[in-house]
Each structure stands twice: as structure tokens, then as C-alpha cells.
Design a protein around this nucleic acid. Structure first.
Lengths: 263, 263
DNA sequence: CCAAAACTGATTGCCTTCGATCATTTCCTG
DNA sequence: CAGGAAATGATCGAAGGCAATCAGTTTTGG
């Protein structure tokens, strides 16, 4: 029989919540726990999958990669290949014994993925980016430090005064930052809190490498972060032609090209 | 045909690694990626499951709850019911507007679980415990702050000078600590770093609640943390009889009994 | 207040996965 | 170096999962 809309919503939320609690549940378990038929369970799973809230598997379903960090996962999917390229190139800028900083966002996360795949040893990693810290913590060659601060679930990142103060204690050899926009002047973001932390990290860093895929070129988002300088370079998969097309002209040697991956 | 032992080990590590990368993979995917037959894949999965490194599902397998935090998951399983009880009782000690501290370990994690289930609103949570922070970050009613510090993957906890300094900035109403041993004198742990952080948190706290299930009673592990006092109480599922049996006699009113759960 | 729309659970037939077994090949121990 | 032990891939029957369909009931929207 038909059932009011709020009941459906509530039941589907319940399914999602059970999944995020147990990570994986077979369809039969869901039916048992919610007292619903398999048909309904499957329909709910299909709906939740359409909404990208879960991942179905044969026989059950999983809470999505990181149900806690929904936006992170989404952004991760966009332009993944370029980010991987950039991540590897970023890693290759590091030398053993150095200290690097990984900013929030998915492009710095790609640097972490590259480091996990092929670590620079030894290396100290400082970050405000929780997924990065988790990814790298088990890697023997690395010492991972997390900044303190307020935990923003949406961004899965630490922010606030505490984080800013916390980064002030470090000496950083290379800071890998992300941005939403890249222009000839420098790079841009849209949240003040993030920018303040980025600036604090940049102040502590000998070298700043702005990691941004080609789609960020020419975007000018609300707040300006930093201009290009001898210490601030751009690392991107963009071609020189793309740079010109977006009117992003950089001082000599301030552009590091992420080479095509060779599989 | 039979194959040398190191090949098997390597292949199984590969399976585990693929799973921890993708979180879930269907058997068919594993076969394709590793060029092995389904039979072998299933045997590997069975072996990895026996070693508790993964979880099998119908049609595939998952990396274990937290492949990054193996020991955490293990400890979580022990005495789960008592921990849940303690967690709920701990939550009920909190009042809206307060600031609480959650220590590392699985018993404080149970407090986080209780808070997620039924949050005190509003509440500020300060923790060195990454799983706690992740669990609670999405809860609207809560502000979650993570201490800074070195990320220890084994314990999934933040430690070191930075963490200790970081906790020094807080005023904490109630600090929920964990322990490996509980005696009439006070409570005990076995890692100096952890103890230093616990003491630092206790110094900043108006009230310290030591959360320990009955199995910890009478254990005396290498290092002493703190004695019972007007500010330091024990919260446990143990019965008064169990306390006596373990020769844990506490000053009056220093023992909070976690009541049986009523489902 | 009525009719159309929509949700549920049962059933059906098809497809996938599973574990067991077996012959074969290779390791490794004594 | 010889023989037992062990791992592999193929095959097969059984078990379980899936989507589609259908009838029954309640909601929703006009």
C-alpha cells in the first residue's frame, strides 16, 4: 500500500544511517532490521544510490566512501586524472628529510595519494586535511602531524584560530596549497577561514606550490590569497597554450608543468 | 600448480591493499586486476578474513572497518556491551553548553557513539581521538575540536608535545579518560606519552571521569596516572561486589555505576 | 471527495556467486 | 633428490540475489 512521503524519507534515512554505522549490510539484514520486504529494501537502495548517498553491491550496500565527507568525495571525482598527475609531480619536488604541508581540498589529497604510492623517505607531513592524515599515517616512512582546530565536517578539514596558531609552530620546506581560482595575479579562494590558514602556512614555508588543475584557470573567486613570487609557484596539468588562453601569464619559471602520466 | 609462499603472501597483501584503496571490490574485479581465477581469489579472501584483515560479502569483500586502525577495531570488539553502557551513562553526565574532552581509546569512543545517538545540545567536544572526531563532526549539535599533534596510526590518536600544548588552551568541564588498569589507588596506563596527555587534560578539567569496564579492575599496568579525588571519579559497569572482589575500594561517591541498558 | 498516482509486498524466471571436488603442477622438507 | 604437501584453475550443483510484473491499498492533488 502507498505510504506517506515522510515515512519513505525517514526509512531511507534510516537505511543510510544503518549503513554508515555498519559500513556494509546485506539486503537481508536491512529487511530484518527495518521490517520491510526485499523489494522495498532494493527500491530504497536504488533511490539512495541515485542520490549518491550509498554504493550498492551485489547482495547489499555500503555507506558511501566517506559518508562523513560527502562534498570531499564529490570533488574528488572531478578531474581525477589531472589531480593524480599533479599529485605525482608534487611528490617529486620533495627531498628526503624535508617537511611538507598539505592544504585542505582534493588536489593536496592527490599529493598524499602519490606519497602513499611511492613515499619520499623520510618525510614529515603537516596537514589540516583529515583524509590526508589518515591516508598517510600508516606509511612507515612518514611522520604525520595534524594541526589542531575546529573540525569542519563538510570540508573534512581543520580550521580556526587554533589551526592557524598551530601551523605557526612549524618550519615547512614546501607547502602544497589548493585553490578555486588561478589568474595572472595569483590564486583565489572563497572562504576567508581557509585563506587565513593558507596564508599562515605560506608564511612558514620556504616554498609554496599551488596545485590546481586546468579547470581552475582564469577563475576569480571572492577572495585573493597570494600573488606569484619567487617562493610561490603554480603546479598544473595545463598546457602553456591553456595558460595563455585563460590570460594567466606568469613570471618566468613560476610555472611547473605536471607531465603526462606514463603508466 | 603450487606456488612459492612469498608469492602467496605478496598476492594477498595486494588484495588487501586493493581493498583498502577501493574499500569494496567485487570478486570479479579482483580476478581481473590480479589475473587470478575466481577460485584463488575466494581462497585469498577466505584467508584474509581468517586473519581479520578484511570482511567478505556476498560477491566481493571490504577492507576492514578501519584498515588504518587495526588495533582500534580489535579493542572495540572486546566487551562492547559494557562499553556501550558506560558510554550512555557518561553522556548523561553532560549538560548543554558544556565542554567535554574525549581521551584516546575505545571506551571514550563509546561516549562518542552515545553522543551521536542522542546528542547533548549544544556541546563542545575536544579530543585527540580521530575516530571520535570523525564520528561526531557531522552532528549539528556539536562543535568538535581536534587537538594538534603527531598522528599515531596504531592508536589512531594524536600525541606528543603539540597535543599536550594544544589541550592546555582549553577549559574542560568533564574529561572522559580511559585506562588499562583500575585499582584502589587510582588508574593506570602503559604508555608514557598517553599518560602525559591525560594528565594535561585532567589539569584543565573541572571533573575527570575515568571510563573503564569491569575487566580493567585490579589491573596494575606500568605507569600510574592519577589518584581518585573529589574531581576524579570512576564510571564503570562493574558491580559493587566486583569492585570489592578486585580490592578496588574507593572513597565515598567516587564511583558512578553505569546502569544496565534498557532496550 | 474522487480519481489518478504511487508505494508495498509477493511471485516469477533468470543470473551470479559460492563451496566442494578433482586433476595437475610445483614447492619444500627431510 | 624424492615423495608428500600444497596451491592452482576448471567444473558442477546448490543457494542466493536481482529486476520485472502484478494486485492491493493509501496518499495526494485538484
Amino acid at each position: 500500500m502507498r505510504v506517506p512521503e515522510h515515512v519513505i524519507r525517514k526509512r531511507r534515512d534510516e537505511v543510510a544511517s544503518l549503513l554508515s554505522q555498519f559500513r556494509y549490510l546485506p539486503v537481508s539484514e536491512l529487511c530484518r532490521r527495518l521490517n520491510i520486504s526485499e523489494a522495498t529494501a532494493r527500491r530504497d537502495l536504488a533511490a539512495l544510490e541515485r542520490e549518491r548517498r550509498i554504493t550498492r553491491t551485489y547482495g547489499g550496500a555500503l555507506s558511501d566512501y566517506n559518508a562523513n565527507f560527502p562534498s570531499f568525495r564529490q570533488r574528488q571525482a572531478t578531474n581525477a586524472a589531472a589531480k593524480r598527475q599533479i599529485g605525482r609531480a608534487a611528490r617529486d619536488l620533495l627531498k628526503p628529510g624535508q617537511t611538507c604541508y598539505l592544504d585542505g581540498g582534493t588536489t593536496p589529497f592527490a599529493v598524499a595519494e602519490a606519497l602513499r604510492e611511492n613515499p619520499v623517505s623520510p618525510l614529515t607531513v603537516v596537514t589540516c586535511n583529515i583524509p590526508c592524515a589518515e591516508l598517510l599515517a600508516p606509511v612507515e616512512a612518514l611522520q604525520v602531524y595534524l594541526l589542531g582546530g575546529r573540525f569542519l565536517a563538510r570540508q573534512s578539514v581543520l580550521l580556526g584560530d587554533t589551526a592557524r596558531r598551530s601551523v605557526g609552530h612549524w618550519h615547512i620546506d614546501v607547502a602544497f596549497l589548493g585553490a578555486e581560482g588561478v589568474t595572472a595575479e595569483g590564486f583565489w579562494n572563497s572562504q576567508e577561514e581557509i585563506i587565513r590558514l593558507q596564508r599562515a602556512a605560506a608564511r612558514r614555508a620556504t616554498r609554496v606550490v599551488l596545485c590546481a588543475d586546468a579547470t581552475k584557470l582564469g577563475q576569480r573567486t571572492p577572495f585573493f590569497v597570494l600573488p606569484w613570487s619567487d617562493a610561490v609557484h603554480l603546479l598544473s596539468d595545463a598546457s602553456p597554450a591553456q595558460l595563455r588562453a585563460a590570460a594567466v601569464t606568469l613570471p618566468r619559471d613560476h610555472f611547473l608543468r605536471a607531465p603526462e602520466k606514463t603508466p
